[in-house]
Design a protein around this nucleic acid. Structure first.
Lengths: 214, 214
DNA sequence: GCTATTCTAAGACAC
DNA sequence: GCTATTAGAGGGAAC
């Protein structure tokens, strides 16, 4: 159905009544009308276009990888896998030819679908979805960091308690929680995903320090 | 490995040194010691127990469906799919025999894993996770409701604008945005998932009303 | 009180 | 700027 709409728009041309005039039944570029269209694109993407016009209107006719289509227009795998919904070309993977084929999608087709009511409804609605997800990701990272830090504190406290209970005196870890003044005993460092810095907390007094690692 | 621990605990019994005494090598109920154990359970769940003791200690020996195990102990699909981690029985689906098998898990095994350090660590930690997810769900529902409402307003405003622009005068929708006093023109209702009430907004003045539907 | 699918995010893997 | 697989989470449908 989408394909039908596309095909209707595709030509500035309607077939003659008797359909016998070969000049009129021939496929023409949807932009300039030339007969030198890319038949590969016509077949695989359902788009009648010539090489010159491809280059002339990259906003419409540039190709996107599957990953790009997914990231830039927030499309899902099932949608991108359905050739009737989103036609695509397969090309050998540029990283290594034995890997999975690269999937290429036509920008205006991807946009037409993404901005339609079937998906986001408008470019603005897509933008909203973007910021929504950004906030969500940020929130989750912060929450994870916080819980990781809390967990670390809990564990190191418990370890220190166990050591003191067990009467471990050898080495530098003996009796670390007995008095107020002390050399800080740093626990394992935890990375803050926001800043890239690492946070360590003293297993005795709980003091926290944040450092940048290289 | 979990299975080994379970087996060690499973019997009040250790094999004789030469392993020849059949009274001692026979499998006995882990609760009462009877020989009339459920061999199906022994095989599939690795649990030596008799029917009487099953009924006597439902806190330990009742069966949970996969859905229950997932919802009540917040376990994941991969965990529940691994028979070495969480053994389970398959039974025909009670709703329709052609549907997927029902998966049944032993309560004490599910708890043992869920409360272990491999998973939540303790019943209290599981509780925390519960409330955390509740809050998350609530937050998301509110956000969704808000955006839905905003979207609805946008759409109905646009529709009203279009109608007035197009000069539609027939029917009850003519010229809805021309003056201050008017009969409210209610847009489509949106449900508030919190309260179950529905919210309608007037496509002209934007006034909102909330009603309970039955 | 039934399960599999879908969606999103993210790291690993393809050779 | 490569893709398919995985995991987690949630709502709706049926093998």
């Amino acid at each position: 159905m989408l394909r039908r709409m596309r095909d209707q728009k595709a030509g500035p041309f309607e077939p003659g009544i008797n359909g016998l005039d070969s000049r009129e039944t021939q496929k023409r570029c949807r932009e300039c009308g030339t007969l030198e269209i890319d038949f590969k694109w016509l077949e695989a993407l359902g788009c009648q276009i010539c090489q010159t016009c491809k280059d002339k209107f990259p906003d419409k006719y540039s190709l996107l990888t599957k990953t790009e289509a997914k990231e830039d227009y927030l499309l899902t795998d099932p949608e991108l896998k359905d050739p009737n919904l989103l036609p695509h070309l397969k090309k050998p993977n540029p990283h290594k030819s034995t890997w999975n084929d690269m999937m290429l999608y036509l920008r205006f087709q991807v946009e037409e679908y993404a901005f339609s009511d079937k998906k986001w409804g408008s470019p603005e609605a897509l933008d909203e979805e973007f910021t929504k997800r950004q906030n969500e990701t940020k929130r989750r990272r912060e929450a994870k960091f916080k819980s990781k830090l809390a967990d670390l504190k809990r564990r190191t406290r418990v370890d220190a308690y166990k050591r003191s209970k067990a009467g471990v005196t050898g080495g530098s870890f003996g009796d670390v929680i007995s008095n107020g003044k002390h050399e800080h005993q740093w626990g394992r460092a935890v990375e803050n995903p926001e800043t890239g810095a690492t946070v360590k907390s003293c297993i005795e007094c709980g003091m926290e320090v944040e450092e940048l690692e290289f």
